[in-house]
Design a protein around this nucleic acid. Structure first.
Lengths: 206, 206
DNA sequence: TTGCTTACTGAGTACCTACTAGGTATTAAC
DNA sequence: GTTAATACCTAGTAGGTACTCAGTAAGCAA
């Protein structure tokens, strides 16, 4: 019989999936705040009410935690975007008879992002940090940029003279606007700013 | 007489201004690589062939080092931009009869940036990192964004219907393009990409 | 009730963090 | 040649870093 166990009982013991999800959400917030280089496993653990080894049990290491967060966000975003466009997820970027246009997709993307500044900041910070070749998300963001440009290009292929060029500019403008918005959310409304930008970018000459 | 002094003699003793400049250059490279949160004073000192206290002697603290780097870069950039435009520095953003147009300034900026990817990366990383309110460069980048938008707005004031809107879009597009360029320098040429983007952005409707 | 799985803990490792105190050696001014 | 300024050093502080190890107890199935 022991009256004072060295182990705490006030700590909730969660099922793995649930705990993992909590860790990913927490990490998202902290990376948005401090970047990956500034992320501390201690802070993540504290934020989840765990010890550091307790949370490493679920994610393995700091690097694999980052990868997990990115994959988690990608899934969530694809789901949400498909929903906003009224499409099933698997059909979002599928080939075949085109169902959506580039301006429609952009508009949906921006409206989605306007609802989750925290996540936009996560990607903004990691997008810049991961420019360095040694960064654990370097390959991920390189692939992501390629994929995005390919998808955007495909969406306006046939409609404009230079679909690739347009894709590059659309992606750049969206990213840039988001950063300005994050810096001064009071001054800039993301959706309005984007619609104005889209009007200029997508207008046909002549 | 002592045959083995504990002090090293192989270490160059530089005048303060020169050493300080070296430290700022080194820090620029390292922040571009790892961000400010990932910057280690040890690495800066190593890169300069100094001990950590030896280099702290010149810059005081990590935070003040960051500020010094940003100020140093601003000066350099203003000098270089004025030169590219064939203007004296003090006249760059001065009032009075307008001498340069927004497209001209942008073109000069982009041409300058294409020559120094390292510094562009420094700003890209810090721009994202500093979105967090607690970041030591938070205030700096907020002011910088305001200043840039004001300057861009003034440059096309009177020429277009919505100078502020255009300024926001120009700034966003430049930033976004630079990140894409930094990620895939082999694939994207910054100057070409910008000229194409400018052509679309600045063309008059009708 | 037993036994297995597993979520989680405390303690510890080896190392890095910015920064300070106090001293030495070099340089420049006189 | 002497003195004053200063560039830079060694040593140390107090704390943080990711991560490992071995063990404990909660939950579930039989």
């Amino acid at each position: 019989m022991q009256t004072s166990s060295p182990f705490r009982r006030d700590r909730a013991r969660l099922p793995a999936a649930e705990r993992r999800r909590q860790i990913l959400e927490m990490t998202t917030r902290l990376i948005a705040e401090r970047g990956f280089w500034g992320l501390s496993m201690q802070d993540v653990a504290d934020g989840c009410g765990l010890t550091v080894p307790g949370m490493l049990h679920h994610v393995g290491s700091k690097d694999s935690l980052l990868v997990a967060v990115l994959e988690y966000r990608d899934e969530e975003d694809a789901r949400s975007l498909a929903e906003k466009l009224g499409l099933p997820v698997h059909q979002l970027w599928a080939e075949g008879p085109r169902r959506v246009t580039l301006p429609e997709v952009c508009s949906a993307l921006v409206r989605r992002n306007a609802e989750q500044p925290e996540i936009v900041r996560l990607f903004a910070v990691l997008e810049a940090e991961s420019l360095a070749p040694g960064h654990p998300a370097h390959a991920y963001f390189k692939a992501r940029q390629r994929r995005t440009l390919d998808q955007f290009t495909a969406l306006s292929d046939g409609d404009v003279a230079d679909p690739r060029e347009l894709a590059v500019q659309v992606a750049a403008l969206m990213d840039g606007l988001q950063i300005q918005w994050l810096r001064e959310p009071e001054t800039i409304d993301l959706v309005t700013a984007w619609e104005a930008a889209a009007a200029r970018l997508f207008r046909v000459p002549g």
